[in-house]
């Protein structure tokens, strides 16, 4: 029984053949197996492409052009409320503008709002959550007090108040959404930091001489990043809906801006007409519904596949 033990016995045959796989690629692998999630992802991809093309002025450029019609007597009038036809697949609105183009342009507006909001709320949430969880004590008390106060004010009221302070308009709506929306993610981040700072790998990093910021953002942050991704995906839904609600109450998009909220709020009067003008409302609602549903499905699928329960 004289085997050569100890140092010279590399014991590696188990994992030699596979290429190195990070937990991220594992998660992607799991995600790919979820057909519905992949489908949702493609819908979101189309939404993003459309939005960017609209923003770049390459698609639906005619959204603000009024069209005219000539009746039998030769009078020229605005082609308002023409039902869906070959020329205007989703009909026209009161000023004879193509509803399809306006709905497509709406995607660009919602994307802008969502990105602005996400940038703001993720920044605040991660920073405050990390500080509260990692340092604890006095800092934690202040940050907790801050978000508990914020959370105890009804969200919509807070949004309306903030938009009044900042002024009306889409950018300010996005900023207001961001300033209000960080509480949930901040709570999650704080809990994650609390959990991770007690792990031995953090102690090991400390023992190696790493300072608090290095530990917070180089060591712990990658372990909480999946939460940011999930929150980002589900946050899109909030941004899109938030814009619609705030525009509906008259704080968001201005009259000429083709946001989904604008289209929906104008539909109030249109539905009361005889015959009812249903196509702008339906188009905007369906567009919003599909995008939000896709983000929700993807967000849930991301949550499942990025499950922080680490592999054994």
């Amino acid at each position: 029984m004289n085997m050569e033990p100890g140092l010279q016995n590399p014991t590696m045959e188990t994992s030699q053949e596979q290429p190195a796989r990070s937990l991220w690629s594992d998660a992607l692998h799991r995600l790919k197996k979820n057909r519905l999630a992949v489908f949702s992802f493609f819908i979101i991809l189309i939404y993003l492409i459309v939005a960017v093309l609209c923003g770049a002025g390459l698609l639906a450029t005619n959204y603000d052009e009024q069209s005219y019609k000539i009746d039998e007597k030769g009078n020229i009038s605005l082609n308002s409320y023409s039902p869906p036809s070959f020329k205007n697949p989703l009909g026209t609105d009161i000023q004879g503008r193509d509803v399809l183009s306006r709905v497509l342009q709406g995607s660009w507006i919602s994307l802008r709002v969502a990105l602005t909001m996400s940038a703001i709320y993720i920044f605040i949430a991660v920073l405050l959550g990390a500080f509260a969880g990692y340092f604890g004590g006095f800092i934690d008390d202040i940050i907790q007090w801050l978000y508990q106060t914020l959370a105890s004010i009804p969200g919509l009221l807070m949004l309306i108040a903030l938009t009044f302070v900042l002024g009306k308009g889409l950018t300010n709506v996005a900023v207001a959404l961001g300033l209000v929306g960080w509480v949930g993610l901040c709570r999650l981040m704080r809990a994650e930091y609390l959990k991770h700072k007690a792990r031995d790998y953090v102690l090991a990093a400390k023992a190696q001489g790493a300072g608090p910021f290095r530990i917070m953002f180089k060591h712990i942050f990658p372990n909480t990043f999946h939460i940011v991704i999930i929150s980002f995906s589900l946050g899109f839904v909030h941004a899109i809906m938030g814009e619609v609600v705030l525009t509906f109450v008259g704080l968001g998009a201005k009259a000429h801006e083709p946001s989904w909220g604008r289209i929906i709020s104008e539909a109030r009067a249109e539905l009361a007409r005889e015959p009812a003008v249903w196509w702008p409302l339906l188009s905007a609602t369906v567009a919003m519904f599909i995008v939000c549903l896709a983000f929700n499905i993807l967000g849930d699928a991301l949550r499942d596949s990025l499950d922080p329960k680490l592999k054994e």
Partner: peptide, 27 residues
């Protein structure tokens, strides 16, 4: 002075070795 050592790892139940399952670690 030194402990006797069984080389290698406990096999992964997903990939048991062929033949006698202890053979990769057996002298």
């Amino acid at each position: 002075k030194r402990l006797f050592v069984i080389p290698g790892e406990v096999p992964d139940p997903l990939r048991f070795p062929s033949g006698c399952r202890f053979h990769p670690r057996c002298s």
